[in-house]
Design a binder for these strands. Structure first.
Lengths: 199, 199
DNA sequence: CGGCGTCTTGGACGATCGACCAACTATGAT
DNA sequence: ATCATAGTTGGTCGATCGTCCAAGACGCCG
């Protein structure tokens, strides 16, 4: 193998691990599967990571910080509040249908973290981040549309997050896209009914 | 060990497996952990089950048919539509806070089934069942309250299922009960706004 | 009593896993 | 050129897993 800095190899292994997760699931993401995906000898692994847990932890933080959540970060653009909400929900859903595996991995990692001693904080932070992103999104949308939410922002963000997680989870099981889109449309209308024009 | 019919031993093993799942998670529910929980020798396992997968499949169908979903089956009782909806959502949430592990196991099993070759149908059926229950609940509530839903029942059921799954998943991570209850209250009000009095 | 299913049991097998290590090699500073 | 540092490699260890089996024990029916 050509010589490479341990830092760089770490990054490649993290990327390889994520690909394996998407393809085969978190449980089957073994050290051997990862180095095989990255086309590296097995010995490399514990030279770059102290343990398998350390790798998974790294993947979780990457996903949390800038991965799947990015697809939700799309309240930008033109139009009134209704159009922007509808477009945001549509864009989110586009992301799910485009790469279901990535979202599936997100949930698997959450449950993995919840079961792993000392990893509960990772799951906690994961959802704290999601809620924060949604909160910020809703706040920006309200400001640029000149409205005020009639529901406390943390509650509204949690509601939005719940609907998105819920429809995704259900769709991963039954792949009913049509009804899912209808649910998102319904949710969009509901959100609009919770906006009050500023004085 | 006292002599016992294989059928009966199966049931005890299924129950033991469920307890292990709730306590340690699906991944750590090994054949040895199960027989240990049931206080049976290891050899019993493959006398009662052809494989570990067969046991997990049995647990999934039990949960799907009458387990966790039962907690949602509570639209019964007195009062107007608003009171009944609020009480139903509250009862559901009571169930989650009372035994979070059981709900957590439900999600873990869903993801397990989605990854297991040939088990996708189990996850499919699981959610088909949930949606059916919610649909029936909403239909009964509408009839006894003399209202009609202004949204197609399958869509409304999926929406309700999504919110419940979503808030549960989020709460399992951050344990924020207060905001979760607010989300459920908000959802209840939303549902009421989707009811039209019959002519 | 004798036989025949049904059930019980402890041990063993091969596979796979995370982790570890010793030997080797390349690189760059002195 | 020397040497310390950093990186590479293949093999191996012990643990754990699902699965299987042979030998025995029980209970029922003839």
């Amino acid at each position: 193998m050509s010589r490479m800095a341990a830092k760089d190899r770490r990054e490649e292994l993290i990327a390889a691990a994520f690909r394996v997760m998407v393809r085969d699931g978190v449980v089957k993401t073994t050290t051997r599967a990862v180095v095989n995906e990255a086309k590296m000898p097995l010995g490399v692994f514990h030279y770059c990571f102290n343990s398998r847990e350390e790798l998974l932890q790294e993947v979780i933080t990457r996903i949390t910080d800038s991965g799947v959540a990015k697809a939700r970060n799309v309240f930008e653009g033109e139009g009134d509040l209704g159009a922007r909400i509808a477009r945001s929900l549509y864009t989110f859903w586009e992301g799910v249908e485009l790469s279901p595996g990535e979202h599936q991995v997100g949930y698997e990692l959450t449950h993995y973290a919840l079961r792993q001693e000392g990893f509960e904080d990772l799951a906690r932070r994961q959802y704290a981040h999601y809620l924060e992103v949604h909160e910020q999104l809703l706040a920006e949308a309200a400001e640029s549309a000149g409205i005020t939410w009639t529901v406390p922002l943390p509650v509204l963000a949690r509601y939005l997050n719940a609907v998105l997680d819920g429809v995704t989870l259900c769709w991963l099981a039954d792949r009913n896209s049509e009804n899912t889109r209808e649910v998102l449309r319904l949710t969009g209308e509901h959100l609009m009914s919770l906006a009050a024009k500023d004085a």
